[in-house]
Amino acid sequence: MELRQLRYFVAIVDHGSLSRAALVLHVAQPALTQQLRQLEEELGAQLLHRSAQGVVSTDAGKVFYDHAQAILKQVADARSAVTHSARPSGSVTMGLPHSISGALALPLLTAAREQYPDITLQLTEELTGNLAEQLKSGRVNLAVLFDDGQLTPFATTPLAEEELRFICRHDAIWFSDRNTVSLQQALNTTLILPGLQHGVRPRIEAMARAAGLVIGNVIEINSIAILKSAIMAGMGATILPVAPVLPEIEHGQMRSVRINSPAISRTVVLCASRNIPLTNAANAIAALTQQVAADLCRAGTWPGARLLST
């Protein structure tokens, strides 16, 4: 298996056509077809379905595509680490959970452009479970995750402790005359939450078990945008940090209520792979992320977040 075969395969999938990929790669189409055939023979699996309309990945092809992308990215990172060893430059990919990106993404992008103009910072917004897998495979260099006790495969740096609150529509009948609710009261409502492996859900489940409580009726939605729409439709409430729903709270569409007995929070951490070395550029972005998170906490512009010492 050769790197060029990986590049050819990724280009074919990205462009959806052998002919278009051949044009972009400046490779004759028969040569491209031959390299693809050799790759499939070596793997013992068909990677693409071919038709007059183009090509689409088989199930095996989808799995291989993810690995091929990760390998090509690590090769590019290795090249960048050697050729740009003096001054941080190159491309860095960072993964952010949906519920964090609203607070951290824009300040981090702004700071990166100002302090490291030679670094191309690519931010990807994903579910936390997906980000962990992408970090393991090397498809992202860094990821912001939550300390749920399952982060041992990663090198971690704590960024902040983020309070979780009971979030509901502004006119919801739940505890309308209360400024706080107990965790048990919150859990007894119809809650709209991510799936078990994502976002705030593991933390809520752990806190419930520790308090000897049981979560009642749950509607699972793995999208912040759809989750907010469900709250506005009156389907239920949620337990989230304030940041992702701050616009709705400021416009009077939703409200947040503190949870006590016990209070609930999550630890936000910056993660990197223990097995894949970071480039100078990635190390620079990691340090910058810590700085930006600290500045946001001190300024109070990351709602509900408290700075953690490293």
Rank of each mutant, 00 (worst) to 15 (best):
L6K: 14
R7F: 00
D14G: 07
L18K: 02
S19C: 02
R20L: 11
R20C: 05
L23A: 15
V24N: 04
L25G: 08
L39P: 13
E41F: 00
E42S: 15
L43D: 09
S57C: 11
A60T: 12
V63S: 11
I71F: 08
L72H: 10
A76Y: 01
A76Q: 10
A76D: 10
R79W: 09
R87G: 03
S91F: 05
S91R: 15
I100D: 06
S101E: 14
E114C: 07
E114N: 13
D118N: 06
L123C: 14
T124F: 04
N130H: 05
E133M: 11
L135I: 03
L151Y: 01
A155M: 06
E162G: 00
L164T: 08
R165W: 12
F175V: 12
R178I: 07
T180V: 03
V181Y: 00
V181A: 01
L187Y: 04
L187A: 02
N188K: 08
N188C: 09
T190L: 02
T190N: 01
V200I: 04
R201S: 14
R203E: 06
I204P: 02
M207H: 10
A210D: 10
G212W: 03
G212H: 05
V214K: 11
V214T: 15
I219D: 00
K228T: 14
I231S: 10
M235Q: 15
I239Q: 02
A243L: 00
P244K: 07
M254H: 09
A263V: 03
R266T: 01
T267S: 03
I276H: 06
A281K: 02
I285Q: 11
A287G: 13
V292Y: 06
A294H: 08
L296H: 10
A299P: 03
G300L: 10
L308D: 05
L308M: 08
S309M: 13
